[in-house]
């Protein structure tokens, strides 16, 4: 059991550091990167927590969180990079 506690603690520390980077910036891409990392760490935390309480069904939540994390990162990057979500067809660089 204690290994799960150790892993959860390490992941929580990492999440705290990622949050510090998200707050400090300095560019918006640092923040997106920090949030992407935070999401990945959340996936680990959910999985470890599922094992910690003996209910591996939590892995389904982790899977969904991984999916949403990916889509969310791409969407926010696209929105920030292009200032809009639908770049239209005539934008030369519209393809992120």
């Amino acid at each position: 059991m204690s290994m799960f506690v150790a892993a959860a603690a390490a992941v929580l520390v990492s999440m705290l550091l990622a949050l510090i980077r998200a707050v400090k910036g300095p560019t918006v891409y640092d923040r997106i990167l920090a949030l992407n990392t935070f999401g990945t760490l959340t996936v680990i935390l959910i999985a470890v927590h599922g094992f910690l309480v003996g209910r591996p069904e939590f892995l389904d939540l982790a899977l969904v969180y991984a999916l949403i994390n990916f889509i969310g990162t791409i969407a926010v990057t696209k929105y920030v990079g292009l200032k809009e979500l639908d770049p239209g067809v005539d934008r030369h660089r519209g393809d992120i």
Binding site: Y29, V43, T77, I96
Partner: peptide, 28 residues
Amino acid sequence: AKLAMILVFILFTSPTSCHALCRAAAYS
């Protein structure tokens, strides 16, 4: 199987989002 699925999914998506982010940063 579920653990392997999540792992493979993260390994396939993380370079994509990383590249998108890098490219967006370079463009801006």
